[in-house]
Amino acid sequence: MPQYLKDDKNLLSPTGRIKHAAQIMSNTRPPRNAWDPNNDFPSGLNDIINKGLSFFKKPSADGNPRNIFIIIVLLLLGVAAWSSIYTIPSDSVAVVQRFGKYLKEVPSGLHLKLPFGIDSALIVPVKRQLKQEFGFKTPGATDPYQSAPGNNGHQETQMVTGDLNAALVEWVVQYRVSDPSKFLFEVRNPSQTLRYVSESVMREVVGDRTVDEVITIGRQEIESEALIKMQTLSTKYAMGISIDQVQLKNINPPRPVQESFNEVNQAQQEKEKLINEARRDYNKVIPLALGEKDQRIREADGYRLKRINEAEGDVARFNALLTEYSKAPQVTRRRIYLETMEKVLPNIKSKVIIDTATNNILPLLNLDSGSITMKQGAQK
């Protein structure tokens, strides 16, 4: 080590060496490349520069490495790179905040942000259908607001109907995050607020109906009305939530009267069954009888029209013959006779033709039919 370094104890520290080097450089010519072998720096300055470069390479007297500064710089660079890169799943978007203030929304994929907590990204699942359960719990659920905390699930189901009866109502609300900025910043704990809104609306809707409607025939109307009212309140409170479906699960009376209600339900179901069977028989027999009635009426109308047309045709034919007969009686009489015989004779199997001029005839034996047939001609 040079003598001037030994004489000055301040030069033994890194800070002292840097100050001493700056003082020397201020009294010399403009700085040059310290690594140029042709430079003409003073030998003392070269020693200082070389000592400064090797300071971080050699271990200190207590064994600690001198390159701790380089390690810290590398760590800071690694932390900066790690904190500036983030990935968003395909079913989500990220809400970016800068120093806690809303900045923008970014879609799914790989993105960059300012490191060291300057920018922060909150991932919101906007394409995933979320649900809240009332009165029961699904094992393995990761959402803390999916079911009631503690043992409050049984209290949520206890409701009073419009006819002052009690009922245990279980239902499910399925929803999506439609506006991430409103979901995060407009309402505190929007999922918990949705539970309060859903419970309030369901109690209102159930309280407008009788217990029979709630348990039996009014389920679909309750679901539709509750869905509309929940969506209206969610929009009014700017929760950034879209209600997809409200589905009723189990609706039971209180346990002390549950058996009696089950018997009433069974009797009502039996009643509905008998009514449906009677309607089935009615729909099977009545249309058949109506069809037969229409068929008989059409047949009677057809026969009536047939007889009327035949009578009118016979009258018209007789009038036409009478007209022709009045013009030529002999000719018409003979033509009628011939036409009549033309129709009658083909229907007679056995024919006996006798000359009218014959005075005596012999009896004829009809061997075909097994009887004797005898015909005589009329005398003029």
Rank of each mutant, 00 (worst) to 15 (best):
L74W: 08
L45D: 08
M374Y: 11
Y325P: 03
V169Y: 00
V160L: 12
V315E: 15
L11Y: 00
V201S: 10
E312R: 04
M159G: 03
G240W: 03
A238Y: 07
A141C: 00
Y282E: 13
M202R: 00
Y337H: 11
N366K: 00
E299P: 01
W82A: 11
N165A: 13
K271T: 13
S242L: 14
L122Y: 11
G117I: 07
I48E: 08
R195K: 12
G207N: 08
V160R: 03
V331R: 13
P180A: 15
F183C: 08
T210I: 00
A320W: 09
P59H: 11
Q155C: 01
E156Y: 09
I251N: 00
R29M: 04
Y325M: 06
G291A: 11
L364K: 02
T358V: 15
G140Y: 11
A34M: 14
K351G: 01
D143M: 00
V344W: 07
D62V: 14
S54A: 09
V264Y: 13
Q231R: 12
K9P: 14
V315I: 13
S13E: 13
I68M: 06
K273L: 15
N152A: 07
P31G: 02
A267T: 03
K375W: 11
F41A: 12
V197G: 00
A238G: 03
G52M: 10
A357G: 06
D40L: 02
R188A: 11
Q245E: 05
I48A: 02
S191I: 02
I24M: 06
K57Q: 03
R255S: 06
Y196A: 15
F69M: 06
G63Q: 09
N46R: 15
Q231G: 07
G302F: 08
F116E: 00
G377E: 08
S224V: 12
R280E: 12
S260Y: 12
I71C: 09
I71R: 08
